[in-house]
Design a protein around this nucleic acid. Structure first.
Lengths: 142, 142
DNA sequence: GTCTCTGCAAAGGGTTTGCAACGCA
DNA sequence: TGCGTTGCAAACCCTTTGCAGAGAC
């Protein structure tokens, strides 16, 4: 399974922090991890319902929050007011999002270091954090 | 006045599109433009109240929406669920936000063009849009 | 005088919380 | 068995909307 390793890694990470692995929580994590794109809590909840997994919406929110707290999910507030989440156990990087299918590709931020140094001098700002998002059309959709 | 030119430009832009310049609307725009940092509708509303400007919260929201529609305000959804706005009549660019005082510096995106070309080839993505945000500590706060 | 804009309050939509029952460990 | 977790529904919070009166042009 493609996401198997990442899944088990997250399972272990949760276990280390004394989280219990219940059926609803695991159902949310599996569905979420297999997705590979940003999704809202509501949408994820609906998918689980369709699969006959008895999971409350509140549990979906709580699980996503838990995953975020252990660094396994990225949160992206949308213009409309909703929040989209992405299963994403990798440390610090950025995303390129396909505007057609929603697929997400990872972008390392190593190549941005020089740019950041230049900006630091130019703006007289000590930059300590950044957030980049790229949007476009992926290989398969174009 | 520092923001005078931008203010009058926005006033003219609104006039061209047949918006009426009412007292409440102008109060919101003035307060907003003088600020120079991101602010939520609620916070802006409170500032206006303190200045004894009788403006409803709904009017603040409507004015911010109007400004956004004519390209004079930038919207930034926050993790918590609120939306922050910045008076920003310049076309397309990015921001560096001071994490202490909230001051915003503009970052042109010209220097990022090469980076974007490289990513297009590497990811097999046709990138059509991007959003960058930088966070750090400004000159005065450090 | 017309037609947009305003303020208020209610509605709307997403997210969080309280609580009793449940079920891992 | 103890304590974290769940589901439900109510509570919350931010934002939008309906409507009658006010005001710009």
């Amino acid at each position: 399974m493609k996401h198997g390793n990442a899944l088990q890694a997250v399972r272990a990470r949760l276990g280390q922090r004394a989280y219990r692995m219940t059926a609803p929580r695991w159902a949310v994590i599996e569905e979420f991890a297999a997705l590979g794109r940003y999704i809202t809590a509501k949408e994820l909840h609906e998918r689980l319902r369709r699969r006959h997994a008895r999971v409350g919406l509140a549990t979906v929110y709580r699980t996503l929050e838990t995953l975020e707290s252990v660094g396994a999910a990225a949160r992206a507030p949308q213009p409309h007011g909703e929040t989209a989440y992405l299963f994403c156990p990798v440390k610090h990087h950025h995303h390129a999002v396909c505007t057609k299918c929603g697929k997400v590709a990872d972008v390392s931020c190593g190549s941005l270091a020089r740019l950041e140094r230049a900006l630091t001098a130019e703006l007289r700002f000590k930059l300590v954090q950044h957030r980049f998002e790229f949007f476009g059309v992926c290989d398969r959709c174009s």
